[in-house]
Design a protein around this nucleic acid. Structure first.
Lengths: 152, 152
DNA sequence: CGTCAATCGTTGATAATGTCAATGGTTAAG
DNA sequence: CTTAACCATTGACATTATCAACGATTGACG
C-alpha cells in the first residue's frame, strides 16, 4: 500500500526553508495531500470530498439550505447545485422547498443517503487516520481544536 | 477593510455538525479561506500564493530544481513551468541549467526578485496574522508545529 | 394593497487549475 | 553504444472557480 509518487521523498534538504514557517503554505500542503488521499479512498464509492461534505451536513441534526451549504463549505452556490445534482441523481438526498421561505431549499438525506454516508465516513476516518499518523492522539485533538478556532 | 462576503456569518447553528470534527474538512476550509485572503493582499503585487511560494523557495538557501519545486508544492511539473514563465517574464527569477545534470534547471532569484519577495512576504505575514487572529501566539506556534509534522 | 429592492436557486460563459500523455534533450548503466 | 530512465516542456482534456444574469419569492415601505 504505497502512496503513488509520494510527495515527501528526499525533501529533507528543504525543510529549513522559510516557506516551511508560513502557516498558509503548511495548510495548503496538508489540505492538498489530505483531500487527495481521501479522494482516492472515496473513489470506490464514486464520491469526492465535496460530495461527502454535503452529504455529511445533510445527515446532520440541523437542516441546511443550499445557500448555507455554500457558505459553510466556501463554495459558490452554483457548485452546490452541481454537487446536489449528482447526489440527487444517485438518490442520496432530496431538495425540499423550505415552507418558511419558498425561495430556498432544504437538503434532506434519503435512507440510502444515510447508508452511503456511513460507509463514506468510515473511509474518511481511515484516511485521516493515515494522514495524521505522525501525530499522537493528543496532538490530533490539539490540531482539530486549533483548526476549528481558525475556521470559524 | 471588511472581508467581502464573510463566509462565517450566522453559521453558529451548524458548529455542532459532525463534519466539524473531521480534520480534512477543517483543513480544507482554513486553507481555502487563508489562501483567498492572502491572494487578495498579494493582488497589489500581481502575485498569487503559487508564485509567492515558488519565489520564496527560490530565495532560500538551498537550490531547487523544477522537479523539486513540484514535489514540494504538490503541483504538476507543467504548472511549475507556467508559474516560472510568469516570474521569469517579470524578471524575478532565472532558469539555470544545472551544471551537474543538464536535464534539470535550478531556479535562481534576481535582485528584483528578492526585493519582490521581501514585499510579498510582508503582505503574507500580515494576512496570516489576520487569519490566525483568534489564536494566541503560543497556539500559532503549536499549529505550525503540528502542521509541519503532518505535511512532511 | 402594490412597488421595489433584496434574496434564493439555477443556468451559462469564461477563467483558472488539475491531470495526463507525448516529445526532445540528457543522463546513467550495462 | 545501446537502452532505459529522467528532466522540462508542450498540448489536450477534465475539473473546479468565478461571475453575471434570470425567474421565482420574499420583506419593507409607501
Amino acid at each position: 500500500m504505497t502512496t503513488p509518487t509520494d510527495p515527501s521523498a528526499g525533501l529533507e534538504r528543504f525543510l529549513g526553508a522559510q516557506l516551511t514557517t508560513e502557516p498558509i503554505f503548511l495548510m495548503a500542503r496538508t489540505a492538498s495531500m489530505g483531500s487527495a488521499a481521501a479522494n482516492r479512498k472515496l473513489a470506490q464509492l464514486e464520491l469526492k470530498v465535496r460530495h461527502y461534505s454535503v452529504l455529511a451536513l445533510a445527515c446532520g441534526e440541523e437542516q441546511l439550505t443550499q445557500r448555507e451549504l455554500s457558505q459553510f463549505l466556501v463554495l459558490d452556490p452554483s457548485q452546490i447545485v452541481a454537487i446536489l445534482d449528482d447526489l440527487e441523481r444517485r438518490g442520496a438526498v432530496e431538495r425540499r422547498t423550505d415552507p418558511r421561505d419558498r425561495r430556498s431549499k432544504i437538503i434532506a438525506p434519503t435512507a440510502a443517503g444515510r447508508e452511503l454516508y456511513a460507509q463514506a465516513r468510515a473511509l474518511v476516518e481511515s484516511s485521516t487516520a493515515e494522514s495524521l499518523s505522525p501525530l499522537s492522539p493528543a496532538e490530533r485533538e490539539q490540531l482539530s481544536r486549533l483548526l476549528k478556532k481558525v475556521a470559524f
